[in-house]
Design a protein around this nucleic acid. Structure first.
Lengths: 234, 234, 234, 234
DNA sequence: TATGAATGAGGGTTCATTCAT
DNA sequence: TATGAATGAACCCTCATTCAT
């Protein structure tokens, strides 16, 4: 495992916080963020992730604030509008998924097993909450997002290249195919805190993974998917 | 093709309208439905399907009315509340998908090719719009729905049995697995009239189909999915 | 009984239709109203009276049409807008109340008993439905109304004069006092088809009648009430 | 005056605010109600009382908000739906009426004069606004209401018992008869800010009071009225 | 800073009235 | 003529966002 060289991600699995605010928190700044402010911030992102998953992306922000145990205005202090909050949740999920990918690389001997492990782990991390990324009006190029996305795509790309080199992954799929399909298959059902759903999701992921395995059983139409490719032309 | 007997659906491909109001329209009744009223009704369902796909199931009903070219109150005359309209769209989509399944059975010689054809055709029919069925608060047992659902599931079940008997479909998947995953993979992205998305969707469907093909490349966790299985326990 | 002369109303109790359209119906006109049109008209007024009493004066006109067993547009053919319908109901109620007053004069030997009888009979005729007359925006001077109002007021005035001459009715009350208070005390409770209410109403009317009886037990403030006196100055 | 003992209400006339929120405002609580919020709340109730009287209980809530000088959503923050607002107005009116009853007991020497004074004072307090209590769909048993109703009925009952013991009030009337008839006679005329109406109302009240006076001039039909007796049987 | 309160814009729905069969 | 259907204006209510404590 992890015998490759140059292009591979480093497999350091040092625990990222997964909040996407690491850098800011670590670096001392002019107005040092108070400890309770930081805690509030994390509680808000965390509550938002849960509620987006449970109740859909249209959930009232007041509900998120209540779940987080803060006043609504506190939420607005940290995230001036809804899109900011959504972006931070997306970044947070990406970060955690990237961590899982790295862990899979580091700890799984068989490259395709590593891929399988990542896919199921990403589902547990609610990677389906990334679906807003695909939606209209979301700034897919926001700097804060780009960094984390590269980290995630880098890690997944690494997973895929390893599997491909081992002859276990078909040649005609790219990192975007995996991530988009993965998001869709695990995309939460609005309004339902549906416990049963998870179990089905893992079945579908398993079927999808079987379809990814080499040798390819059919020719794929079109070209590999990427986030950028999803831009509308209108 | 269609050499099976008893349990199979009849493969009559007489063109259903797919609107789910066929019966009512055809049968003369006490209060004859006016011609223009019927036309309005279909235009509303059609506009709703498009807008649900393009903009998500939360689209303002006024927008649907505008798109349909009628006043908002006309929409309410036909569908007293949002859930009614959603249900009719779901029924309509199911009906068209069932038609596609039957056509695939009737016209494709190879059973797995028939399955493939259905899956891609269902995507074109926007079967992803069935996702509200999975959401909370949707009456999955409404009589009008049940009838059409049985027709769809019957047809898809037939497709799958044929493929399975021909040794082309793995044994451990049920009709619910296919339909739920199919809905998820083709589920529209709210707010994006994303032309590019379709092309990726067909890639993912192809991958998923490859995973469905026999022989199974892995063991599936859990039990086969069904709409009923998605009920919450709360 | 009915021994008075000049100023008294004639006590002919020939059965008025009470619809307030007698005159029109009897006199042949250019476009003779068809029999079914007349029947519809009466059914509408009748349904309206019932529903105003049961459900308040804001009841949807469609409901009235349904209760009358006609289409909504038929209602509008007969009564171009709500105020017209209300006026016809008011006229109808006035007419029936006037009939009751005349009958009381003709059939009751004791003048105060005649007054009592009228008051309770008017309650049964839902004279409380006259309350819209008191409300803003109602044309109290509409010709069609004036005629019937004079008939009612004439009859009630006669009742009161008889009682007063017999020394049974206090001197300081006028016909308006009686009719306005009577309307208020019998005014229906919106939204309640309250069977119990009637029984209380007759108690209160009885108390009010006792207050009307001579000799007066107190001095009344202000001046006698009339419909005209209720005009707003704004 | 107030020579009776045990069962009588205490005749403390300390000025209640009559808003029905006294207790909450006085007692310091966990979430201290802000001063301006309290002021807004009272302004809303006050505006609502005025507009219910002027324009009927169907007035648009937006108008009430405008009259109160607040945004519409502020109204909804304080009173989640129309029924809540109506109930608070009813409670407020009851409270003020009860205060007037107590004051009459305390300050009038003659028991029947006390009753007269209360009746006219209650009219000035717009006790006719209690009519929604009689209407369908109003929760007559709401706890907040029950307390104030008991206070009102207790005070009025005391007034009546005193008058009865003094031989001034007929024996066959109960507190419900007085309050229901009083509500009806003073019931506002929808849509009319009718200044003249008040003057007539006091005449009618005077007549009604004369009917209440002993000795009874007639036998009353039925049984004494109560709020409970007005429940529908459906 | 954290918060409860306030707000205006917008969506859902009803209903008086008009239109077309 | 009688009617079902269509319509827009108005109302109720919610929620993202701003304000004031």
């Amino acid at each position: 495992m992890a015998t490759e060289t140059d292009t591979d991600v480093d497999t350091d699995t040092s625990p990222d916080t997964g909040t996407g605010i690491r850098a800011d928190a670590a670096r001392p700044r002019a107005q040092r963020p108070r400890a309770d402010a930081l805690r509030n911030r994390e509680r808000i992102v965390s509550a938002a992730r849960e509620m987006f998953v449970e109740s859909g992306p249209e959930v009232p922000l007041d509900e998120i604030a209540r779940r987080a145990g803060v006043g609504n205005a506190t939420l607005y202090r940290h995230f001036p509008d809804r899109t900011e909050l959504v972006r931070h949740v997306v970044v947070s999920v990406m970060s955690r998924a990237a961590d899982r990918a790295r862990a899979a690389i580091a700890e799984e001997a068989d490259p395709f097993d590593a891929l399988r492990r990542f896919v199921h782990a990403a589902a547990d991390e609610r990677i389906g909450a990334l679906c807003p990324m695909l939606a209209d009006g979301f700034d897919k190029e926001h700097p804060e997002l780009l960094a984390e996305r590269e980290r995630l795509e880098g890690a997944v790309d690494s997973l895929m290249r390893r599997a491909r080199r081992a002859g276990r992954l078909r040649d005609d799929v790219a990192v975007g195919d995996l991530l988009v399909a993965l998001s869709q298959l695990t995309r939460p059902l609005p309004g339902s805190a549906c416990m049963n759903f998870d179990q089905f999701v893992h079945r579908h992921l398993q079927l999808f993974l079987d379809g990814l395995e080499a040798p390819a059983r059919s020719a794929l139409p079109g070209t590999p998917a990427t986030w950028e490719g999803l831009r509308r032309e209108s």
